[in-house]
Design a protein around this nucleic acid. Structure first.
Lengths: 241, 241
DNA sequence: TAACATACATACATGGATGTACGTAAGAGC
DNA sequence: GCTCTTACGTACATCCATGTATGTATGTTA
């Protein structure tokens, strides 16, 4: 009921992010929101939606459930925000590289390697965990995830069709349709990336090899240099003290 | 499995499985247990452990929670029983084929194709769903799943090492260790199999291609004939009378 | 058919997580 | 300075799923 404030520690509201003695409201709000989003992403990645406890999310971010409910209407909206954030991040880090690729095959293999690098973070499994958890349901979170997945599949399908027309991907008479190939391609990338999470630097080339195999190509590592800059370090630890 | 031989409607207790007017207690018990296990496997595959509702499990099997708690001590034991059942089934259907393979590479590719075929059923995702859900936790179910997964990885690692010694799998100086390759191999298989679930007959060759790619080989479909007998039909629909 | 055990249903108790209402401190405009 | 709004914590209410206790019908054995 009463919170003593005499001790000099812990000003500027939450202690999840850096503390500035003179923070504007918008700053506080943005920092708190970011901390909660990151914590929720980590939690969703580890435990999934159903097992996620908002008390734990808030505590990991350095707040209480009160702060969380002040920023989000509830668990669902929080998860939707995390979803949007993760998809945006993916696009900024991986999608951009794919767009710059000179040809369809290079784009597909860049996608594979880029996703492997992206998955080095602990939030990697958010998308897959939510997609599995809500598969076949009719839940807003499931729809959002499924929409992102469908976009990715469409893009891969288009790239595969282009590569087939150019003769870069073999296309026998009884070969699978491009959409099925895209499913296999994305599935191979996701499965391998998650399995190899935490096994850099072998992750990227192995994921690319599996993805290339699904497409019916042989992967030449020299042909397309790895996109790995430095291993990602964000969202791995939260600042304490 | 079910032979009704008399017109009497709905005797012998539960109506989930076949009904026999003169069923012995052991028969009733076994049938009920099987129906509950199958229903639970389907539920776990779709919703995972946390989101699984025992009321729904019992109802889908044609019983109430009372029957479930009479056969199992609770959710955990039920899930452990499902886990054991799924792993046993996998071994009987896939593991046997792998053991019969003439050489390590054939064994690995047989494993890939066999798993794809195994995943045509709707209980395919049980193992992966539980493994993701309990990853990093210390839960009995997680331990059981992890144990099965570790056995699989060990076996694949041994096969990969044997294939490398025989020169069948390339092994460069800075190539990944066999354990890492096994992770990639299994991950590629799991991801591709789940993504292609419901896309027969392309599933098996595509999974094999992705798995072969992870190993650094090119997959020749003619070299190892597909193991697909007929598509599995068990555990796909429940009788509703 | 009398007694006992088993299979299963029904009703109740409990706990844990969500969501809501309310209270307090701190920024923002005057 | 005063007032309003925002950020956040605390306490309460509610719901839902599990687990348990009890009741009933059916097999089983004498």
């Amino acid at each position: 009921m009463d919170v003593r404030k005499s001790g000099g520690a812990d000003r500027s509201g939450g202690r999840g992010a850096a503390r500035q003695p003179r923070a504007t409201q918008a700053d506080r709000r943005a920092r708190t929101r970011a901390a909660l989003l990151e914590s929720a992403a980590r939690g969703l990645s580890r435990y999934g939606y159903g097992n996620l406890r908002l008390e734990q999310v808030a505590q990991d971010a350095g707040y209480t459930r009160g702060a969380l409910y002040h920023q989000f209407t509830g668990k669902q909206e929080l998860t939707l925000a995390v979803t949007e954030w993760v998809l945006d991040t993916w696009w900024q880090e991986v999608g951009v590289l794919v767009e710059r690729a000179p040809d369809p095959v290079a784009a597909l293999l860049t996608l594979a390697r880029g996703h492997a690098v992206y998955c080095r973070r602990d939030i990697a499994r958010v998308a897959m965990a939510l997609r599995l958890e809500f598969a076949g349901q009719d839940h807003p979170v499931g729809r959002a995830i499924e929409q992102g997945y469908r976009d990715l599949l469409d893009r891969c399908t288009a790239l595969i069709e282009a590569a087939r027309e150019g003769g870069a991907i073999p296309d026998g008479p009884d070969g699978p349709p491009a959409g099925t190939l895209a499913l296999a391609f994305v599935g191979a990338i996701e499965g391998t990336s998650i399995a190899l999470s935490g096994h850099a630097p072998h992750d990227a080339p192995l994921v690319a090899r599996a993805a290339a195999g699904a497409l019916g190509l042989t992967y030449d590592p020299g042909e397309h240099p790895a996109p790995d800059r430095t291993a990602h370090r964000r969202t791995t630890r939260r600042g304490t003290s």
